[in-house]
Design a protein around this nucleic acid. Structure first.
Lengths: 215, 215
DNA sequence: GTCTATAACTCGATAGAC
DNA sequence: GTCTATCGAGTTATAGAC
C-alpha cells in the first residue's frame, strides 16, 4: 500500500467532501483539469451531482480546494519522509528530488507533477488557481531553502539560498516535464546529475575557503 | 512589427491551411488545447467549419500539424536570430535563453512555452502529440549541444555535452513555468543566474586545466 | 446532505449544396 | 475548396423531492 493511501486511510471513513477531492486529485493529475468532466469525478467517487455541488459550487472551487490540500500534504507526504531517512541538510535536498524520481518510476513517467500540470494549464485563464499554484511553489522553495540554510556553512559565504532554492525547483519541474514528454527517466537523471555536479563545485569551493592552503 | 509577424507576412497571402494554423497557434498558446474550441479557431481565422475540416479531419490532426510547424520554426525564429547577434558559442546558449526572456517580457509572463504547455496538457492522453513534443525537445537540445560542442575546448574535458544541453532545456522550461505561475520575471532571472554561475565554474575549471600553475 | 431528472449550452464533427 | 445548417454527444450546473 502506498504511503499516500495509508495517509488517506488513517483519516478513517472518508466524508463526502474528501471523497470528491480524492477522485479529483487522481483524475486531474492523470488527464488534466479541462479534460476531466464532473461526471467522471462523480463516477469515481460513486456520488451524485447534488453531493458534489453542495460542497463545491463550481469546478473551479474544486480545484482551488485541491490546491489547498496539496499545500497541506507537502510536509507529510514530500518533506517529512525524506527528513526521517536523511539528516544531512544538503542530502535532504537531493532526497526530495529522489522522491519525485520514485513517483516517476511508479507512474512510468506518465503523469508528472500535479502542481506543475495545473500551473501550465490554468495560470493564463484562472487567476485564483495561478495564485494558489504560486503559493505551493513558494512553500516548496521555503522547505528547500530551509535545508540550504541549515547547510550554509558548507556553501560559499555569499550564496543566495533563496535563489538557489528557486533553481532547485526549476530543475525539478523542468526535468519532470522532459521525463513526461520523453516517457523516460533519462532526462530527469541527467538533469539531477548536473545539479549534483553544480553542488559539488559549490561545496568544494566553500571548503577551499575554510582551509585556504592554495591561492 | 514582431519578427514572427514579419515571418508570416513574408509568406505572402496566407492560404487557408496556414490561417487555421496561425489561429490555432495563438489560441492554444493562450488558453491551452482542450480549453480552445474549434469554433474559437474558426472565428479568429474568419473561416467556416468545412474549410478547417477539409485540411484537418480532427482537432488532434491540427495540433500535430502545429507541432510540425514549431519544428520548422525553431531555427528561423529561435536559433538564427541569436546566432546573427552572437558568435561566442557559450554566449549563444545564454542568448537563446535571453530570447525566451524577451518572450516573457512581451507577454507579461502569461503564456509560457507553447511546447511545454502542450507537453504537460496532452502527453498523458495523446501519444502522437507526446511524440512530436519529444521531437521538438530533441531538436532544441541538439541546437544547444551544437553550441556546447563548438565551445568544447573551454569546458572541462570530460563534459557530457548531451547531458548538459538537456540540463539547459530543463532550466529553461522549469524557469518559464515558475515565471508563469508567479507572473514575475524573478524566478526566470534567478534560475538563469544560477545556470550562469554553474557555467562560470565549468569554464574556470577548464582554464585551470589548460594553465595548471596550481595543483 | 443526498437523491433523480434535466436544463441550458458547447463540444467536435458531418452532410450536402455549390 | 468553401459554404450553411445541424447532428448527437457531452459539458457544467440547477431544480425540487426526500
Amino acid at each position: 500500500m502506498s504511503r499516500a493511501q495509508r495517509w488517506i486511510d488513517d483519516q478513517g471513513e472518508r466524508p463526502t467532501r474528501e471523497r470528491v477531492l480524492d477522485a479529483a486529485m487522481q483524475l486531474f493529475h492523470a488527464q488534466g483539469y479541462t479534460a476531466t468532466g464532473i461526471a467522471a469525478i462523480l463516477e469515481r467517487a460513486d456520488l451524485n451531482p447534488g453531493s458534489l455541488f453542495h460542497f463545491f459550487p463550481t469546478k473551479e472551487d474544486l480545484v482551488l480546494a485541491l490546491l489547498d490540500r496539496y499545500l497541506t500534504l507537502l510536509d507529510p507526504m514530500v518533506i517529512a519522509p525524506v527528513f526521517e531517512r536523511i539528516t544531512d541538510p544538503i542530502e535532504r535536498v537531493f532526497g526530495i528530488l529522489d522522491g519525485y524520481r520514485r513517483m516517476l518510476v511508479s507512474t512510468e513517467c506518465a503523469l508528472g507533477c500535479p502542481i506543475g500540470n495545473l500551473a501550465l494549464e490554468l495560470s493564463d485563464t484562472h487567476p485564483k488557481v495561478r495564485a494558489k499554484v504560486a503559493a505551493n511553489f513558494d512553500q516548496w522553495c521555503a522547505a528547500v531553502r530551509g535545508c540550504l540554510d541549515a547547510g550554509r556553512n558548507r556553501l560559499p559565504p555569499k550564496t543566495d539560498t533563496d535563489r538557489l532554492a528557486t533553481f532547485v525547483l526549476t530543475v525539478m519541474e523542468g526535468a519532470v516535464m522532459q521525463a513526461k514528454a520523453q516517457r523516460s527517466l533519462d532526462p530527469y537523471d541527467q538533469s539531477v546529475a548536473e545539479l549534483r555536479a553544480y553542488f559539488d563545485r559549490l561545496l568544494a569551493e566553500a571548503s577551499d575557503w575554510k582551509k585556504p592552503r592554495s591561492s
